[in-house]
Design a protein around this nucleic acid. Sequence first.
DNA 1: GATGAATGAGATTTCATTCAT
DNA 2: CATGAATGAAATCTCATTCAT
Lengths: 210, 210, 210, 210
Amino acid sequence: MGIRERKERERERRRQQIMVAAKRVFTDKGFSKATMEDIAKEAELSPGTLYLYFKNKDELYASLSLRILQYLMIRLEHVNAEPFTDAAQRLNALKEAMYDVYEFDPLILINMFHMQSSETLKNLSADLLKQIESLSRNSLKVMANIFEDGIRRNIFVDKHPTAIADILWSLFSGIVLWETSKKIINGQKDYLKETFDTAFEIFSRGILRN
Amino acid sequence: MGIRERKERERERRRQQIMVAAKRVFTDKGFSKATMEDIAKEAELSPGTLYLYFKNKDELYASLSLRILQYLMIRLEHVNAEPFTDAAQRLNALKEAMYDVYEFDPLILINMFHMQSSETLKNLSADLLKQIESLSRNSLKVMANIFEDGIRRNIFVDKHPTAIADILWSLFSGIVLWETSKKIINGQKDYLKETFDTAFEIFSRGILRN
Amino acid sequence: MGIRERKERERERRRQQIMVAAKRVFTDKGFSKATMEDIAKEAELSPGTLYLYFKNKDELYASLSLRILQYLMIRLEHVNAEPFTDAAQRLNALKEAMYDVYEFDPLILINMFHMQSSETLKNLSADLLKQIESLSRNSLKVMANIFEDGIRRNIFVDKHPTAIADILWSLFSGIVLWETSKKIINGQKDYLKETFDTAFEIFSRGILRN
Amino acid sequence: MGIRERKERERERRRQQIMVAAKRVFTDKGFSKATMEDIAKEAELSPGTLYLYFKNKDELYASLSLRILQYLMIRLEHVNAEPFTDAAQRLNALKEAMYDVYEFDPLILINMFHMQSSETLKNLSADLLKQIESLSRNSLKVMANIFEDGIRRNIFVDKHPTAIADILWSLFSGIVLWETSKKIINGQKDYLKETFDTAFEIFSRGILRN
DNA sequence: GATGAATGAGATTTCATTCAT
DNA sequence: CATGAATGAAATCTCATTCAT
């Protein structure tokens, strides 16, 4: 391993350290109430240091989205790579994958919707934006593949696989948001796991033939 | 109409005027990039005036959530009030209701998730918070009633009606957020209507017996 | 009584009503924290109305000083008018007069020191400023007369009567300020009356011959 | 000197720099007319910097009170530490001490009375408030000690030493306020030194036996 | 005269970002 | 590289004052 490479690795480690801290703070306070100083403190670094690794606050925020997408991608590819057994099992694998994504970063979905404003997007570097866009497109494509496969085998109802993938992803993120929201506002117990299971049962019945 | 009543009505009109402007600006720029001055300009009022009607920026933002919940509540009660014909028709009525809610205020669902931070919550008046909480609880209850009815008549699969209501609402808001997100990030065409229809078909197959 | 005169009397009544309210609010919150709306509410009038009677906030404030000076003046003249009996009695009458002034408007003395800034003074109308100045000068002159009389009769020590008047007034206002201050900051019991009595004893010993 | 210690010292220096500027501006314009920007400009710092050292405007203002109390405390302890010679000399030392306090910070006594409003008090940090309270209590205690000593030696009249201390401090601050007030309002010459000397003569006669 | 909603200038305060060390 | 004090622009918010009714 060359010295350059080691440096690069060290740098990446630092980026991760900051992102972990940022995730915690953003999760706790939301984008607008979280300050760069909060994040720096959480990361046990100085505010100035954050700027050596991220162009600005918006970009740090957006990087979290990239991170979860990368994780999602990996999990989906695993599901896809497993030898096909039966449809129900496959859907179950998908459910597990998505639940893992949730556990990896529960509030990240909110993060991803924060970016819905041109005001925010124009603060991002073209490079980061392209990465997010392509990864997001690909994740859905991999998910769609799974459904396409099922449709071809005549196990799933004949709907456009991309649409099904979108629906599943929407269902998933909708549940995360809504259940989290209820928990915070009403202070009620966390029913996310149960809701998610029921949702998947309904979804499965909805797309499986017969 | 007494003078007091007219005053009250005038005041409510002003509040609405501000909320309409706020919706536009928040939709366009997101919470943290939108400024009170932006909103004042959009409403053709002075910044100070906004504070005569809303305690602070967070409260103005949160009031938008209350507004859409009120609209949702009205539409759901209509569905509930219609004489029961058949299950498919009922689900369809529900779909229409939710789509109307979407059209009433497409991006404002994000609002409801903005509040997911104690930092934000503590800026809200107890009164507003209570209203949102109770309305949100009731809306879901009305929706759950519809499913409970269907389950009792043995038309729907036997799942906990509250859970079904949560899932439908999650599905709905997830789709709105995700499709809007794709549109903004990729600049792609708006497929929301189509996705929504497909999602409802799957959901219906998923909960109808047989 | 002509109609003009009645109007004038009515107007004066209104002014007094506002000043009473202003006194309460300023006493409670201090100048900078008290708002014109606070005062209006206390006076059960609208903010706009205050401006029909006082040019601006500074002038309303300053008018309170004028009011207490007028009261002081009246009380001092009474003391002066009483036929001279003996020195101790006279000093006692003076003490009573000052204590009455304190009871009439305890925190007014703080008010009077608020005006110590050219920034404030330039907001006052020339007329009001002149009135305050002349009344303040005259009050002290009347007080000085009492001492001059005592010195001439060889009862009091031979100091400049104006200086003695200044010292007495300073002692008085200093006690009011300090005792009030202690009461508010430490939350301790009000010892003002006792302190005032002791102070007067010392002062009397200090200026009486023998 | 450790690096930490140097940092701390540097920080203290900055605080002093800001307080010196604040004193000038508050003295010139009074609390409500003085702006944080005025003070920043006077200190040759940016407005934001002030907030790194003081929580808010009220706290900056109140800190000035703490500062003069600290100075008063030091001077009083010196007087107390001097070997007792004779009563008149001791009272003279006290007079010198108080005059020094006045010269250290002539107008800032007004500060101490500005705090007379719960509205202001609630903006102060508990810590600062406690410091002011305790220092203020202690200063008076030290002063009272001096009088207690004199009473025990049968040199001073037999009054409660705490009350005497309160009276002296009231006399002192009353004179400062009143003479300054006259100077500003009437534009007349500064007689403070003379008035102060006379006041002390009277006060001394008032408390010395014989 | 009285009102009180609206104003808008200006105040306080925050905080992303920079840069000298 | 890392720091963190300082910046200063810009945000939120206040409130004395006005003016149409």
